[in-house]
Write a protein that binds this DNA or RNA. Sequence first.
DNA 1: GCTATATTTGCAACATAATTGCATTAACAT
DNA 2: ATGTTAATGCAATTATGTTGCAAATATAGC
Lengths: 145, 145
Amino acid sequence: MENKTARFEKLLVKNGLKRTAQRLQVLEILSGRDSATSQPYLEQVMGKNADRVTLYRVLQAFEEKGIIHKVLDQQGTANYAICSDGCSAHEHHDEHVHFNCDNCHKIYCLDTVKIPALKVPAGFKVEHLNLIATGLCASCSDKIN
Amino acid sequence: MENKTARFEKLLVKNGLKRTAQRLQVLEILSGRDSATSQPYLEQVMGKNADRVTLYRVLQAFEEKGIIHKVLDQQGTANYAICSDGCSAHEHHDEHVHFNCDNCHKIYCLDTVKIPALKVPAGFKVEHLNLIATGLCASCSDKIN
DNA sequence: GCTATATTTGCAACATAATTGCATTAACAT
DNA sequence: ATGTTAATGCAATTATGTTGCAAATATAGC
């Protein structure tokens, strides 16, 4: 693979954000995981590399630019995942299903699963759909049974 | 309609909960609204009739017994609605769609809308589905256009 | 490379939300 | 009426999120 850091730097520049150590580290962490990452976990891993406030602001900036998207888990905790291509400041395309494992509490973005269209009562105008499935992920399902 | 308070009292007893003023008032409030009720709103309406801590505990007890169900809105704020029949401590049947209005921020339980079955990757075991639609509710849709 | 400028960060203070322990109060079975 | 257990309120604590501002840092222009 091409130099990952270089790719992240381009991503930042493209979005008018400066290339700072904290931002790069957040991208590094998020990209290295197979599931969405909770804010508390990020906070912990960043440790003294970034102030708590900075993390909030980095995440907020990334979300606004469409670099990452936020998913709330069943406890209301914010989790973040890098957006697949096609997201921008103008428009998020994160209408895929999120899977929240009851056991390991990981949140998986099931990019391949599309949310089926929905019939709503007359008058209601649906803008966005947000579907979270809970249960056991493949890995925990294996371990437990 | 039969005496509402009497019905609530039965509901409490049936679930092994004592008939307290605070619990009855919470049921009263929730039942009198056409959409899910946010915790902050409940807190405000209860006023000095209940301590904030008591409210947390009442809601938690109700949720555990299957009397109400919790829906998180897009901001992660807890909202509560009385469960339709068929919910119990063992099993919630709140797998209908929730609609979060972007304008009035109400959360409607669209009991009539069923969540379509879902194809997930091999190994994943879905236990519950949680679908939140955002957009404009019928009432706001009218007013705005 | 050096400097000017605008952005970003960290700190401190503050605001809000949630949790815990414990003494007091209230419900209700007998 | 009374004893027992559950529920409440209060105080203290912890967690979570926000704001203003001074210091530090990235980078564009020289």
